[in-house]
């Protein structure tokens, strides 16, 4: 049941030539895909007028992108004319109970997946997503935990990751495909960004930003902005389980 419940939202800018990489699409095969073609609306024009003008182009493009997915993938397409991309992605993710939002970028064939894990974050949900996606793929996983230096004992991080490995093995991922790394770190975000250079895709949990993170930027946001790999953002809601 949990396999079919995994809904992944893939946003595509249909005003441009952007299209998700086929290798990434292959990784997403086990999920139900909501392919959102968003069309930016400038201040000078109403969304209604943009729709009148560009609806057929946008629909054609998103259906064209949908055709790139492996044939057996369950893909639903949607076009939204929006003055604000992130409002739309959040709203559509809620409407469709999507557990994961993809930040598409160019990839090589997906061989190595990096999964940064924070002790407090929605670890079960992240691992469920990784488990579902890796069941049908050959890729290896690196579970990564950055310990803020002086903050906690490294062994706590070790225990956390050992539990995570068990979780993935239970989900059907062979133990030899799972690797772990615990590092002591001044800046977790920078270390994740460095580690990402050796991987093809990131799976990262969305967090409620604290006040200070609102000002300085939270770790997932900084990672998403500074990494040139595709990122699967696991959302911090329970909605994915409700269907």
């Amino acid at each position: 049941m949990s396999d079919t419940a995994l809904t992944v939202l893939v946003p595509v800018d249909v005003s441009s030539e952007e299209r998700p990489d086929p290798d990434l699409l292959d990784l997403l095969r086990p999920a139900r895909i909501v392919l959102v073609g968003w069309y930016p609306v400038p201040d000078q024009v109403t969304p209604e007028q943009m729709r009148d003008e560009y609806e057929s182009d946008a629909v054609e493009r998103i259906e064209d992108v949908a055709a790139d997915f492996p044939a057996e993938t369950d893909v639903e397409t949607l076009v939204v004319f929006t003055p604000d991309r992130s409002t739309t992605i959040d709203r559509v993710a809620d409407d469709y109970h999507a557990a994961v939002v993809v930040v598409p970028r160019d990839v090589r064939p997906v061989e190595r997946v990096l999964v940064p894990i924070r002790g407090d974050a929605n670890i079960d949900r992240i691992l469920a997503v990784v488990g579902t996606l890796l069941e049908e793929s050959e890729a290896t996983v690196t579970l990564f935990h950055a310990v803020p230096s002086g903050d906690e004992d490294v062994s706590v991080g070790r225990t956390l990751l050992d539990g995570a490995v068990d979780h993935l093995v239970d989900a059907g991922v062979a133990a030899d495909r799972v690797d772990t790394a615990v590092v002591e770190s001044e800046s977790p975000a920078d270390d994740i960004i460095d580690a990402a250079a050796n991987h093809d895709v990131l799976v990262i949990g969305e967090t409620e930003p604290s006040l200070i993170e609102h000002i300085l930027g939270d770790v997932p946001t900084r990672v998403v902005q500074n990494v040139d790999r595709p990122v699967l953002v696991v959302r911090n809601t329970d909605s994915s389980d409700s269907e």
Binding site: G37, V41, P47, E48, R51, E55, A58, V59, I62, E63, A66, A67, V75, E76, T77, L78, V79, V80, F81, T82, P83, D84, T87, T88, R91
Partner: peptide
């Protein structure tokens, strides 16, 4: 394929 694509206008305000 040939699925129906719904078109929406986002309400942002």
């Amino acid at each position: 394929m040939g699925s129906e694509t719904e078109t929406q206008l986002e309400r942002t305000l």
